[in-house]
Structure formats: structure tokens, C-alpha cells
Nucleic acid binder design. Structure first.
Lengths: 139, 139
DNA sequence: CTAAGTGCAAAATGTTTGCATACTT
DNA sequence: AAGTATGCAAACATTTTGCACTTAG
């Protein structure tokens, strides 16, 4: 879909700098904009979106849709570590917004089930389980 | 949030007529508009959205967010009889965009598993499995 | 008559796109 | 020089909202 990046621009550099300084956390496109501006290297949002989209294609970044009216949530996955791990799943708490990483072999079974019984090849990278996390449930 | 409907308008009637004629199916706001227009009783989209929102509050209709760029998906759940209760899941094909509506008890097990082993209360209403559907896989 | 519902068009919002300009190699 | 990337502003698409008008009770 998207060509890989070929040029090393300062915009992409600040973006990567951002990603590496807040690993594992989720962020929005405008978070990136603000950070870059505060770093003295402002980036237009089109560029942010374009770079992020490309990184999603490259598997370096994940994109989650929290709800229709909120901005999309991105997440940096250091060096494609998550891609190779087939037993990695994500749970997003609808209340506190926390993103939980699960490495659970049992969940791998659902992929197999969907495949065998429903002819559906699950993409665990893209799939997010929504619900309420332990902490929020107790409130 | 929203008061229950008090007046019986012809717009609401056509809408209900629509719902009862395509139960179990997913539909969008504009689907409703088209149907009503074709029935000779066109409804403005604001009204459709307002009525649907109310019905969601009333629990007569479910609303799903499939992805950020597609219109929201609604589903009629015949009065109290929650067809789409716990064993209803959705799969979205990343290739053709088709939404597959699954009623699978086996999948209910994952909710239980998440609950017991990970303290996570799954919201099946919100969760969408992404992947490739049978037809697209064969291409 | 009053409260509720409707419809239009305009607003809101996050994301995408067209295009001229600037930068990388 | 040639191919990419950027930035702005305009375009998009869906949903919401303001407001005057209509309708149900």
C-alpha cells in the first residue's frame, strides 16, 4: 500500500525521538504535534498522519480506534517485537483507557477456532478487546 | 440522558417498520434514510440519528463502532429478547470490509477466560475481531 | 395550547488530499 | 537533477446542533 520511507528527514527523526521516549504508551496524532512543537521542530499534522500511517504499514506502530469521536490511538511497538509474537493480545479499558498487553496462549485458541469453524483468519495485531479492567471494576 | 419517546410520529413508525422488517441485520443511519424514502415517508437524518440514539438508550437497538471511517452500525434487538447478548461477536474483514455477525458459544469462553485469568470484563458489544474472511482468503 | 418532534443547513471533528514548495540523496 | 517529503488549506464524511416550524396530546 505504502512505500517505505526512503529519506531521512528531521521531521521523521523527531517523531522517532518521541516514540522512543514514551514507549508502550498510547498517544494521539496531536500529542505528537505538541511534543514536536515543544521540541522546537514543529511538524504539520498531515506529516504526522502520513508518517504514522506508514509506520503502521511497517508494523512499527499500532493504531487503535477507541471510539468514533475520539482521535485514533497509536502505540509504538519497539522494533516489531509484537508482530512476531503470535500470542500477544491487547485489552483496552473503556473506563481508564489503559491498554493491557496480554501474552496468553489460551487466546491463541480463539484464532484457531475462528479459522476452523468460521473460516476467518484473525489478525491479532489489529484486534483489541474492549472492556473494563480489574481496577476500574472495583470502583 | 435521553427522555423516552412520548409522541407517536409517523417518522418513528416507519423507522420501527424498518427495524421489524430486517431483524438480525446490521444497518447504518443512511440505510434507514433510504428505506424510509423508498417507502414514501422520508425522514431527515437528524431525526434518524435522534431516534436511534434514543432507542440505544432504551436498549432496543445496539450501536457498534466498526472503524473510524465507516458509519456506525446499528442492530435491532427485538424488545427485551436480547438476541445479541453474550454470544454475539463481530468479525470485520480487513480486505473487503465485510462485517460478519457471529453467534458462537465457544467464543463466550474467551470472555470467561479473560474475566477469570486476567481480571478483564469483556464488552462484546464493542469488541471487533479483525482479519481476513473466507472469501478474501481464497483470492 | 404546550411540549415534543422534525428538518434543514450549518457546525463540529479527526483525518485525508491536492498541490506548490523544500529537502534528500 | 530526480524523486520524496512537507505544509498549508481545502476537502471529506459522519454525526451533532441551533433554530424555526410542525405536530401530537
Amino acid at each position: 500500500m505504502n512505500t517505505k520511507s526512503k529519506y531521512k528527514t528531521k521531521q521523521r527523526e523527531v517523531l522517532i525521538d518521541y516514540l522512543e521516549n514514551i514507549p508502550e504508551a498510547h498517544f494521539t496524532a496531536s500529542d505528537v504535534c505538541e511534543y514536536c512543537k515543544s521540541k522546537g521542530t514543529p511538524i504539520g499534522q498531515s506529516t504526522v498522519y502520513r508518517q504514522l500511517e506508514r509506520m503502521v504499514d511497517e508494523g512499527v506502530v499500532n493504531k487503535y480506534i477507541i471510539d468514533e469521536k475520539s482521535p485514533a490511538c497509536f502505540e509504538y511497538v519497539a522494533d516489531g517485537t509484537h508482530i512476531s509474537g503470535e500470542n500477544c493480545f491487547h485489552c483496552k479499558c473503556e473506563k481508564c483507557g489503559k491498554l493491557i498487553h496480554l501474552h496468553c496462549d489460551e487466546l491463541v485458541g480463539i484464532a484457531a477456532h475462528l479459522e476452523e469453524h468460521h473460516g476467518f483468519t484473525l489478525n491479532p495485531m489489529r484486534t483489541v478487546f474492549y472492556g473494563i479492567c480489574e481496577e476500574c471494576r472495583e470502583l
